[in-house]
Amino acid sequence: MQIMVNGTTHEVDVEEDMPLLWVLRDELGITGPKYGCGIAQCGACTVHVDGVAVRSCQLAAGDVDGEVTTIEGLGTPDALHAVQEAWIEHQVAQCGYCQSGQIMAAASFLETNPEPTDDDIDRAMSANLCRCGTYPRIREAVRSAATKLMEA
């Protein structure tokens, strides 16, 4: 089957029920999305399909209906996404395992809720677990990114 990831179309020979996360990591070598729980409870595997956050461990390869964007395709080193910039500005990451999922979730969230309250941010980002407990910095970074995106 064909699958478009970060602007490139790939031909992959996989079973219809293989989770997208497996396709990305094992077939295409795109390892930004992480495996955490495999049952949609941690958010580490979050990618976008047509700009909307999806848990790639829950989406079967045969059900992908749109262009996939991973953390590798969200911004470039020369032109980071506002959420990536904010992540650096606030030095959010500690171990960093969850951050690609956190950033992809936050980028999608700010598309649909561009002026979130702190409660909105907490509500949205609670579905992405951080074992290091960086939640206060995550909230600050998402708030900063929202402001930057509104000014852009």
Binding site: T46, V52, R55, Q58, A60, S108, T112, N113
Partner: peptide
């Protein structure tokens, strides 16, 4: 407003 149901319920 937060996380779409379809983010996990694909």
């Amino acid at each position: 407003e937060f996380v779409t149901c379809a983010t996990c319920h694909t």
